[in-house]
């Protein structure tokens, strides 16, 4: 099928983009990499009178270290971040999550910011942002504001962004030495959305886990933090126990891809595997 007609806007400044959004309200949609939006338009699951393309907006494609964070501009391509030595060194969890997104042809076009703003609960980057307590920078007609990832993901495909705001950057905290990270997910085919997935970060001092974060995706209306499992890990629980705790706090729904019960069972396993891999890396 073909997308319905729309007016195409290609602003070159953030202020122009947000002014267009303010003018057209919910009749306008932001277009970044388009790897989720264009299929939705083509399948006529969505239509908009105006598309505001961010690809020509200046100042949105930098990867830089700022105040102990890695700041990734909204339209940094997933492939660019995936192959960035800076990303690998400072936010390994992001590096590890990126290859799980679609296929290399998709990541050549898809953006880090677009994936997070799209807020698909089965996608990897929203879970990474949530697990790492990333900060989302939103630009609107009145300037910019910072939104904690914990407050950003409202529901499936819904975020705390207002109609006249764009996601302009994401700031990921940089962890210190002694840390390890892992991403585990179960998909039917390579590149598919996950039936269930987990992202884990741990920091250790000797045999003690001093910092732990666990993000889940594909098992709820938003990415989820497995807070109880994090607490268990910090209290000395092993990976298998923490996996069971994580699974006991979710209630994924049945759909055509998998039952909720199956997703719950899978979650216990992949959380265990991700913790084991992250601990191994942290202790190496």
């Amino acid at each position: 099928m073909k997308p319905s007609s729309f007016n195409y806007h290609a602003p070159t400044r953030v202020e122009e983009a947000t002014a267009l959004l303010a003018e057209h309200g919910d009749g306008a949609k932001v277009l970044a990499g388009g790897q989720s939006l264009v299929p939705m338009l083509s399948l006529r699951l969505a239509s908009f009178e105006h598309l505001v393309d961010l690809n020509k907006v200046e100042g949105l494609s930098a990867i830089e270290r700022v105040n102990g964070h890695l700041r990734v501009g909204a339209i940094v391509r997933q492939a660019v971040a995936e192959h960035s030595a800076d990303v690998a060194a400072s936010v390994p969890l992001l590096s590890k999550a990126l290859p799980h997104i679609g296929h290399f042809q998709i990541r050549n076009r898809g953006t880090v910011g677009g994936s997070i703003a799209h807020a698909d609960p089965a996608s990897e980057l929203p879970a990474v942002a949530l697990a790492l307590d990333a900060t989302i920078e939103a630009a609107g007609p009145g300037g910019t504001r910072k939104i904690a990832a914990a407050d950003f993901f409202v529901s499936t495909w819904q975020t705390a962004l207002a109609d006249d705001e764009i996601l302009s950057a994401v700031e990921f905290p940089v962890w210190g030495p002694g840390s390890g990270f892992a991403v585990e997910e179960l998909t039917r085919r390579h590149g598919d959305f996950a039936l269930a997935g987990a992202v884990v970060g741990v920091q250790v001092s000797g045999d003690t886990v001093t910092k732990a974060t666990i993000g889940l995706f594909g098992v709820g209306p938003t990415p989820l933090r497995a807070s109880a499992a994090e607490a268990a890990l910090l209290s000395g629980a092993d990976a298998a126990e923490a996996g069971k705790v994580a699974a006991s706090h979710i209630s994924p729904v049945d759909d055509i891809h998998a039952s909720g019960a199956y997703r719950t069972q899978v979650t216990a396993v992949i959380v265990r595997r991700a913790i084991e891999a992250a601990l191994k890396e942290a202790r190496s």
Binding site: Y8, L31, Q35, V38, S42, L43, A79, Q105, I106, R109
Partner: peptide, 27 residues
Amino acid sequence: CEHGACGACTVMVDGAAVRACLLFAVQ
């Protein structure tokens, strides 16, 4: 498929392989 799943329409744009069905020509 015309929605990015099959890859039959893959072309290179500025040196990178992409799905031609997931890009508007104007972009």
